[in-house]
């Protein structure tokens, strides 16, 4: 890997980190609403994995998706604008934090029903296999999603039909607040073994380790050797979401994992140690990243809200001729359905 690539990995991870910190701030300031699941601590996985894939390989992830979107090349502006619910966001303010998407970049989206996206990812891989596109599908998920029915149905099917897919568990060791040993009966790799699936455990705090593991996995899948299962052990620094008081994890445990921070470690042990960059250069990168995120916030804040008349757009990709008299579409708003003064929910 050349210097520019390494610097680029560093910059991407730092961009995600700064982006998430500022997103937390914007959430606290009520610029962002709903749920906000931050990626702090897990940056090496998205950055390492995306750098190992071809630009047209398919990526499907869960709701902790800001890092993936940024790593895949979505602009900080588009992502922040989406968090702000603006027309300039990745889905024009439709999906919000948990449902970022950029199909042009083969980023098929964040999915917020735990385990729900695994069958979709297998389906994308089946399509690639059927259409012989040579594309590999990468499906990331949390450790918390490895107990639900769709996980097992998806692994079984993927193995059965030998489809080109990488199941990448971002094992941050907690399903929301529930620790791995409380939610899973067997070690992670045993789950893959149950489907006789090739599996590896990797250090999810090391971007290069993740990168190499995904390279190997993609190669396997691409040459027709079937699905691969990766267990990337990592840690999330913040609570599950902004609403999480994070009382279940000890301060010591968090501090311990922070010492293995993927960004500082990569800077210290790779870039500085190998003299690929000077501290001043890294400081300059940080400055440029901070400016980029500040610009994204400004952009988001100044972006318009989605136009009301777009509300019904894409209800169908193929509209229906009788839509105007449909009970479900145009009619209700015109006909009534008066809002009850008591209807406001508190």
């Amino acid at each position: 890997m050349d210097r520019d690539t390494l610097i680029s990995l560093y910059r991407q991870m730092l961009l995600i980190r700064v982006f998430e910190d500022r997103a937390a701030e914007m959430y606290a300031k009520a610029k962002i609403a709903g749920f906000l699941h931050l990626y702090n601590g897990q940056e090496a996985i998205a950055v390492g994995a995306v750098s190992a894939l071809a630009p047209d390989d398919e990526i499907v992830v869960n709701y902790r998706d800001h890092g993936w979107a940024l790593a895949r090349g979505c602009t900080a502006r588009a992502v922040m604008a989406e968090l702000f619910g603006r027309a300039t966001g990745t889905t024009g303010g439709r999906g919000g934090s948990m449902h970022l998407v950029d199909v042009k970049r083969h980023f098929w989206g964040g999915y917020a029903i735990v385990g729900g996206h695994l069958p979709l990812a297998v389906g994308l891989a089946v399509a690639a296999q059927y259409l012989k596109t040579g594309r590999v599908t990468l499906c990331s998920m949390g450790d918390g999603s490895t107990n639900i029915g769709t996980f097992h149905a998806a692994l079984n099917w993927a193995k059965l039909w030998n489809v080109p897919i990488i199941f990448l568990v971002e094992n941050n060791q907690y399903a929301m607040g529930t620790a791995y040993e409380v939610h899973s009966a067997v070690p992670m790799l045993t789950k893959a073994a149950g489907y006789d699936m090739y599996a590896e455990e990797v250090d999810g705090m090391d971007v290069l380790v993740v990168h190499e593991a995904v390279c190997r996995a993609a190669e396997r899948a691409r040459r027709g050797d079937g699905p691969v299962f990766l267990n990337a052990v990592t840690y999330r620094y913040r609570g599950h979401s902004m609403a999480d008081p994070d009382v279940q994890r000890s301060k010591e445990e968090i501090a311990e994992w922070r010492r293995r921070d993927p960004i500082t470690r990569f800077a210290d042990e790779v870039l500085l140690k190998r003299e690929l960059a000077t501290p001043e250069e890294l400081a300059a990168i940080r400055k440029s990243v901070e400016a980029e995120v500040e610009d994204a916030i400004e952009f988001a804040d100044n972006s318009p809200e989605p136009p009301l008349e777009s509300l019904y757009d894409y209800i169908y990709m193929q509209p229906v001729s009788h839509m105007q008299i449909s009970g479900s579409l145009i009619r209700p708003p015109k006909l009534g359905g008066r809002v009850s003064p008591n209807g406001k929910h508190h």
Partner: peptide, 9 residues
């Protein structure tokens, strides 16, 4: 400011 720490706060 008093932060928003959850969608329903």
């Amino acid at each position: 400011t008093m932060p928003q720490m959850g969608f329903d706060m």
